[in-house]
Design a protein around this nucleic acid. Structure first.
Lengths: 195, 195
DNA sequence: GTTTGAATTGAACTAATGTTCAGATAAAAA
DNA sequence: TTTTTATCTGAACATTAGTTCAATTCAAAC
């Protein structure tokens, strides 16, 4: 039957995911109990099972949703036509997207081993898909002669690791604005691959 | 009383740490039970408490030992006199050291939140100490005019993140040798900070 | 062979875990 | 108002957790 306006499940479902995201990011998947999540939502533990078949699926859904959002957001980003403009777009996009959702990023990187191997495979496929977007840009620059990259796969991993690292230290109230950080990182990325 | 030759504690102690390291790296600290560790060692769970006061201290000891080893190994590394030779030494050292002990590295990055805040502080201090080694090199190159680094703190984090990322994808039997990976990464690091 | 003392067992304890479900509640439909 | 249906509670279940400790084993010292 279709959802009714104002029904509780319209509210509680998202609440569960938000609470789980927060707690998993803060304490780790294995260290968070269903009762803690329920407490955060303002409900008893049993009620969570109206919204997820089990704890692990709850984790998977959070990751899946995150990866889908990532790929979709990149698809809708203006990239320009040259290797340089595309690499700049990617660098800025990655930093911005990650800084906007630190909890989801944290989980996506740290809780992979808590997925069943089936679910792990699904997430890894999406991650690979995202990495391929960057690799394509590097290959593009290599063919135009703008970039000098001895190994595009390796350079892809290096650049993504560098950009992802921002989340480990950036603080909103810190010394540098997000815009400035984007600027400097883009400069380092460019120099590391430009001819 | 002094340790007797051949006494069990000479053997079991290290075994406990090795088993804990392996299991924590594979399944995560919170997901590993004392009984699992004991099983791996070939002993009952109670016996572990001859070698650690509790589970969390066991984790901390692993991390502490790792960080001490890291700093000591860097101190004993030949670095040369120029900014370039020192940065190359650091890049190669970091990759090599990390690839030699993937489990300890994994734990050192992933299980920080399972430490008490007191223990967390101690580990963070050591990590900062290590990062400072790299930052000093970048500052050195900046003053000699060899490097062009708009913000040394930020560049430090960027370079370390990039180098540490190797552990996430490198495989012994893979396409590239460790030597070749060192080569390429050092090249990217150099270009990202050289004038 | 006997004593000594460390190493280890195995059972026990309390607390907490993920999950289930019969029953209560409350809101929408009739 | 009555019926229906989604939502939620609260207790229960079977496991498992970290940790303790009296009792035992066992190897070295005498």
């Amino acid at each position: 039957m279709a959802r009714k306006r104002g029904s509780h499940s319209d509210i509680t479902g998202p609440k569960v995911r938000t609470a789980a995201l927060r707690l998993f990011a803060r304490h780790g998947f294995a260290a968070v109990s269903m009762r803690q999540i329920a407490g955060e939502v303002g409900v008893q533990a049993g009620a969570l099972y109206l919204y997820t078949p089990d704890k692990q699926t709850l984790l998977f859904d959070l990751m899946k949703e995150h990866m889908d959002e990532l790929l979709s957001a990149w698809d809708h980003t203006e990239k320009g036509r040259t290797p340089f403009s595309q690499l700049e777009a990617f660098s800025r996009f990655h930093i911005r997207f990650n800084l906007e959702r630190p909890e989801a990023i944290f989980i996506a990187y740290m809780e992979l081993r808590n997925l069943s191997s089936e679910n792990f495979g699904k997430i890894e496929k999406l991650r690979k898909e995202y990495e391929d977007k960057l690799e394509e840009i590097l290959c593009f620059g290599q063919t135009t002669g703008d970039f000098l990259v001895p190994d595009t796969k390796l350079a892809t991993m290096a650049v993504i690791a560098m950009l992802t690292g921002v989340n480990t230290w950036f603080r909103q109230e810190g010394r540098l604005s997000r815009e400035r950080v984007e600027e400097i990182y883009w400069d380092m990325v460019r120099r590391s691959v430009a001819k």
